[in-house]
């Protein structure tokens, strides 16, 4: 009896931990932290553009890409390294805001935050997005999927199923990095991809 109970529990844990997240529900459940990541990142990139990536599952080390006028710099840091603080000062980032951003990302287990440029006709627009693993645990040979939450600068057009439409040709779906996006609210949408960036 106990053995059966344990087996059922194991199956339950595996099924629950591997099931896809309901992203809209996830967004609203963690809205305060997620919107804080967005707002914080948006204010930080006014100095220099950058992307932040947690490169290990233990969230102890990061890859920081910093964009200047002439070069993109790629740095690898441990999150508690003094070098990181010095680098943030060198590029005129506010360290407190940056560490808050990192902590928020760790709290919601986000992998990556970046700005993405896209074009509506010939007009350049941009959005901010963060990536997560779609499943916290995956089976050995199953492909990892990632979901991304996009914050647009203005309300977007969606069809009746909530799929993001091309702003110019509203008969076509807009793809962002090869994927269609789904509505969370007018300015926030999500997409699912097999790459985190």
């Amino acid at each position: 009896m106990i053995r059966n109970y344990i087996s059922i529990m194991i199956v339950f844990v595996v099924v629950v931990s591997c099931s896809s997240r309901n992203i809209t529900e996830y967004y609203y459940r963690n809205q305060r932290v997620l919107d804080s990541i967005h707002a914080n990142y948006k204010s930080l990139i006014t100095e220099n553009g950058f992307t932040l990536f947690f490169k290990d599952r233990s969230y102890k080390s990061i890859t920081l890409e910093i964009f200047t006028d002439s070069l993109k710099y790629i740095y690898y840091f441990k999150i508690n390294e003094a070098r990181l603080y010095d680098t943030l000062l060198k590029y005129k980032f506010k360290p407190n805001d940056f560490y808050l951003l990192m902590n928020d990302m760790i709290r919601v287990r986000s992998l990556w935050v970046a700005k993405l440029d896209y074009y509506v006709g010939s007009k350049k627009e941009n959005l901010i997005y963060i990536s997560f693993r779609s499943r916290p645990v995956r089976f050995f040979f199953s492909q990892q999927k990632y979901f991304m939450i996009n914050w647009f600068q203005k309300p977007q057009y969606y069809d009746h199923r909530g799929i993001l439409l091309d702003e110019k040709l509203q008969s076509a779906y807009r793809e962002l990095n090869d994927r269609t996006s789904h509505r969370i609210n007018d300015t926030v949408a999500y997409r699912i991809s097999n790459r985190f960036r």
Partner: peptide
């Protein structure tokens, strides 16, 4: 190392 990676020159250690 500095390399050209389309659109950007990239510097990496």
């Amino acid at each position: 190392m500095t390399y050209w990676d389309y659109g950007f020159r990239t510097f990496i250690k």
